[in-house]
Nucleic acid binder design. Structure first.
Lengths: 333, 333
DNA sequence: GGCGGCATTGACAGCGGTGTCAAGTGACCC
DNA sequence: GGGTCACTTGACACCGCTGTCAATGCCGCC
């Protein structure tokens, strides 16, 4: 038999409503009463029924995470962060993976309004879907965009790719590198150009020339890193002392080519990546890379949704990244 | 203004209850009536309210996924599979990550009963947590265990590690390999001994001797694969022609050592792994490996929970794995 | 022709909480 | 002493849907 609020009320000798007040930490309850109720609730192991609560208060105590992201680690971390925040607020996280097509299709509205969630977190690349965002607004749903391409008119949580790339390159320059190769990410990703901007900014700031032959187009895949490295390293008499790849997979490709060519990393070649994905720690030497605050972005996004004290201004929360210096970089010979 | 079931009833000229019947596909509704209701519902874009439904029917239309698994890809795939099944049944998936300690702690019950979920999916290693399983039973919660160590008294979804390892080794033997090295997984993982059993069974079946020096303890990490490979390959005059690592990370370690020693994979050394994790496709050559039916296990688990026609017998559903032959294996020279 | 039985439909009472609003209480002030 | 006000508390309707059970109509069969 499940204990209901009525049982607790009886046990504590108060009305249901008072129990409700205590359980929702509403103000204006006498301290003694509050304690009596809490005691009774604990004793009876009372657990509020989510559905009833939701029905009565027209809140669902659920927020949804919408995603279409092929990167499991990214999503898992966003999830963890969001769940953390949810737990603190008595909320739960619902998962709604969807393809880009679905997100633009007519079913999203159905899905979302059926759920009756109290808020939605959009992850990239969904954060940039205009139809989806329209739909959300049409439904009157509160939402937060994580790392959208353009900072728009909604609450946003992001990190600064440009700055991160700049700092990484600056670190290399401080180590003494002057001739630094760069591998661009997939041209369709907004992050790619930002990282490139950061690279170029750092180089210019340091008064170094940008040699076009040192900048190679990649596509975020290991294989493209291999190809780029083959080009950059082919002339043993004239090669960069460091290579900055726009993500870890490509950086891993560079490391493998270096190994094949007998170029020692990091003493003869420094390599760094971006994202701190699993491969950065799996391979040897471990990659120097940029750790995105993924978990923190998930947490922040949920907090923005749940913290009712925060207003809905289209605030942009920019979280801090971290440069992880590991074994793949060092001073040039 | 949200449309309620009353609006639909009015529009269709029937009672609320009849609308409810139609929407829940209950029997005993005249065809004409059914159509009229569906039409009205579509016209008004009616979406049932989950909370109200749940409250009235004392179901929540939610199932929970409990996990404490460091492998993002595994969890993501389980999630995808489970969500797929949930959608077909009008359910949603709730996420409840928890550490092993939490799972054994007193809060689980609180968490789970508060949720009022209609079912729970347990993923490894939580599938083996006795306290957790006790708690579930105490709460009268239906649950399904994914890949537990021992097939117990609850509905279970799993794959056959022994058989998979056997088939992989058999494939190597068919390719012509006679001298095969094996790297054992982490001793605490139940899968480790199963995979070893499979390896040994296949060797014996083929009439090959088990050379203890060819079997090395690892721990599922890249680094342990490197070490094992260094041992197995140190004597260039006497080394195996193939190495079967109990997972992909270790297999990747083997490949990297082979590269360093100038041993060509696969012409001089075949390497295969297990799990088909991301690294298996990232590195070159791509790894021959065993693909677990992870997504399918997630889907099946949810289906077992939701398909009310299926009874709660402790049925064990064993799903098919797949041997993925890629570039890291071939015939020995 | 009367009756049992089945298919179809609706009235109504909750499910377990919360919002609203009014009532009770005591402190404080004029 | 009476009025005002802030703080506490409770009664009760109602959130939107489903379970229960009874009412209705129609069929076949004795």
């Amino acid at each position: 038999m499940k204990t209901t609020i009525t049982d607790v009320a009886k046990q504590a000798g108060v009305s249901m409503k008072t129990v409700s007040r205590v359980l929702n930490s509403e103000p204006n309850v006498a301290k003694a009463t509050r304690e009596r109720v809490l005691e009774a609730a604990a004793e009876l192991q009372y657990r509020p029924n989510l559905a009833a609560r939701g029905l009565a208060s027209s809140r669902s105590y659920l927020i949804a995470l919408l995603y279409d992201n092929p990167n499991p680690n990214y999503i898992i971390q966003i999830q963890r962060g969001a769940i953390e925040a949810c737990r603190r607020h008595g909320y739960h996280l619902l998962l709604e993976p969807m393809t880009r097509e679905q997100a633009s299709g007519p079913d999203v509205g159905s899905l979302l309004s059926r759920l009756g969630v109290d808020g939605v977190i959009l992850t990239p690349p969904l954060s940039d879907s205009i139809p989806l965002r329209r739909e959300m607004e049409a439904l009157g749903l509160r939402y937060v965009a994580i790392a959208p391409g353009d900072v728009g008119t909604v609450p946003t949580v992001r990190m600064d790719d440009v700055k991160a790339a700049t700092e990484m390159v600056t670190y290399l320059i401080e180590q003494g590198h002057r001739d630094i190769g760069f591998i661009i990410g997939h041209p369709d990703h907004i992050a790619s150009s930002k990282r490139q901007d950061g690279f170029e900014a750092a180089m210019r700031t340091a008064g170094l020339t940008l040699d076009e032959s040192r900048i190679i187009q990649g596509d975020f895949k290991f294989r493209s890193g291999v190809k780029a490295a083959e080009t950059l390293l082919k002339d043993s008499a004239n090669r960069p002392t460091a290579i900055f790849a726009s993500n870890d997979d490509m950086a891993a490709g560079v490391v493998s080519v270096a190994g094949r060519l007998g170029i020692d990393v990091p003493s003869e070649l420094s390599v760094c990546g971006f994202d701190n994905t699993a491969i950065a720690q799996i391979i040897w030497p471990k990659l120097t890379t940029v750790a995105q605050p993924i978990l923190q972005m998930g947490r922040k996004a949920a907090e923005v949704l749940l913290d009712r004290s925060q207003n809905d201004d289209p605030v942009v929360h920019t979280l801090d990244f971290e440069i992880l210096v590991r074994e793949s970089t060092g001073k040039p010979k």
